[in-house]
């Protein structure tokens, strides 16, 4: 394991983690029509979901641009 692999894996995991966590906090997909579901549990969780996607994919840039010993 080197720095490149560790950081890339971390970024992917953080991104996926943010996606999973924010998805749970979105206006929940488990209920259909209740008034409670018209608002997200945590505001901006959709934004966090998107940020999760961005972080996960940015890891590819780090992976290729990072200069380190193999």
């Amino acid at each position: 394991m080197n720095t490149r692999t560790i950081v890339t894996t971390l970024m992917v995991l953080v991104g996926l983690g943010l996606m999973v966590v924010s998805y749970v906090f979105l206006a929940t997909p488990t209920c259909n029509t209740s008034i409670a579901c018209s608002n997200p549990v945590m505001p901006f969780s959709a934004g966090i979901f998107v940020v999760g996607i961005l972080i996960a994919f940015t890891s590819a840039i780090f992976y290729t641009v990072y200069k380190g010993s193999e």
């Binding site: 206006a27 259909n32 029509t33 209740s34 008034i35 579901c37 018209s38 608002n39 997200p40």
Partner: peptide
């Protein structure tokens, strides 16, 4: 509707059904 399609599809929760 008690199972309103409009509430389901609203992407931002602007359409809501009260209790």
């Amino acid at each position: 509707c008690n199972n309103p399609p409009c509430v389901k599809v609203c992407p931002v929760g602007a359409r809501f059904r009260r209790e």
